[in-house]
Computed example of a mutant assay.
Amino acid sequence: MVPFPCLPCFTTKSNTTNHFTPIEQLCHRFSLAQLQAATNGFNPSLFLGGEGPCQVYKAHLKAHGDVVIKRFKTRSPAGEIEFRAEVKILCQLHHPNIVPLIGFCEHKNDKFVVFNYVPNGSLYDCLHGTNNNNVLVPLSWKQRLHICIGVARGLHYIHFGTKIPIMHRAVTSSNILLDHNLVPKVADFGLCKKQPEGKGESRPKPPRVELRENLELSLEYLEPEYRITGRLSHKSDVYSFGVVMLEILCRKEACFSTPGRDCCEYLVKWAFDDERKGVPEKIVDPSLTGKIAPACWEMFIEIVQRCLASVEERPRMGEVEVVLENALLLQERADAVKELV
């Protein structure tokens, strides 16, 4: 087995000579037979999708109701690493904006992670109509602001609210799930990194981490500096979240095709080119036209631009969270005035 390099030894057996906690004491262990029964033998009709070394199925467990089972192709080193990272880290995270882990299964070469089923799918599904019904979920501007705030809170928590800072490294609209109340849950922690505790510092800085060669990331969400340095940091998550916020505002994919052009266009470049920069009507989702208060717009677009700036100029996620909360407050005040008028 390939160990996850930044985490303690992953073990499934109690060992009195080892001070590490057995994984069964951190979360529930399912048998392979239970998961096979819950998916009718991993019936193709229950397949929800998957990319890289993972396949995702919808399932039903008597004690938990509808769940999602993530199956790892662990014959590849990447699948083994992602499985161990996801279980070991998620079982120690507890936050309303982080997807909750139900349990895991490890049976020979078969490895699975079990989560609660999220009925509204991913943020990507809701924005771009790629859910099972292929129907766009109508999101108001305030709903979108609440989603942005929730994601910022979840990312701030993993950056600075845990004992050891974590870098997610795969912040995309596909990895943000929405529950029945549209509360966002940051998901897919298979590529994240933990930093060992520093010596002599009460709060060590998250390190810049070399990206392993077989790590698959969406280039449209990846900071430009990576192409030069080959390293990621917690500010890389901030950049990726800036792209997600722009995606929410424009309701365009982070990389999209335009009529008459053979190549895809990056949303960041498209939204801030000379023709559109500073002109809300040219980039905002048409369904939001006239519904965003000017003061809210200015605050929102400014924090998006700061998130997409160079590493040194990017804010921490805690500041992003506060700015978004203030933007929501400005929108609510403007709406209240409009109602009075």
Rank of each mutant, 00 (worst) to 15 (best):
P294R: 12
K235A: 14
I228Q: 14
G161M: 05
P3N: 07
G161L: 04
R29F: 05
W270T: 12
L215W: 03
P100S: 04
L191M: 14
G242D: 12
Q36T: 02
T229L: 15
S140A: 04
R208V: 11
S76I: 06
F189H: 07
P315F: 09
S31W: 08
Y117R: 00
L182F: 13
R333S: 14
D66A: 06
T16H: 15
C27A: 09
V56P: 01
E265T: 14
P259M: 08
Q195H: 15
C6Y: 10
E281F: 06
I301D: 07
N18A: 13
F4I: 10
R84A: 08
D273I: 14
Y157W: 04
P315H: 03
S287P: 12
F115L: 02
E86V: 02
L211S: 08
E197P: 08
K58V: 01
E339G: 08
Q331C: 12
V67I: 03
R227N: 08
Y117V: 00
M167P: 06
R227S: 09
M317V: 07
E106L: 11
H28M: 07
A336Q: 15
A334H: 15
M317I: 07
I292Q: 12
N40M: 02
L191E: 13
L35V: 04
Q143A: 06
G103M: 04
V151I: 09
L32T: 01
G200T: 02
S287W: 06
L127M: 14
G198A: 11
L249A: 13
I102R: 02
K205H: 08
C105N: 03
L246H: 09
N133P: 05
C9G: 09
L232Q: 04
K142P: 13
H128L: 07
K252V: 04
V99R: 00
K194T: 10
M299I: 14
V56Y: 01
I166W: 14
L61A: 05
G103K: 05
C126R: 03
F72C: 01
T172K: 01
N175Q: 13
C105L: 03
E197A: 12
L61C: 08
R84P: 11
L324T: 07
N97S: 15
R169D: 10
R84S: 08
A63T: 15
I89A: 02
P184D: 10
K194G: 04
I283Y: 01
S122W: 15
F300G: 04
E302S: 12
E86T: 05
L330P: 13
K269F: 10
A38M: 04
E86K: 00
Q55N: 07
N133G: 07
L215K: 08
G150Q: 04
P204L: 02
R306G: 06
N43S: 00
V151C: 02
I147P: 13
F72E: 01
E82V: 03
E265C: 06
T162S: 09
T289C: 12
C264V: 05
H60W: 08
V244T: 11
R276T: 12
G154F: 00
L127K: 11
S310D: 12
F42L: 00
V99P: 00
C264K: 09
Y239N: 06
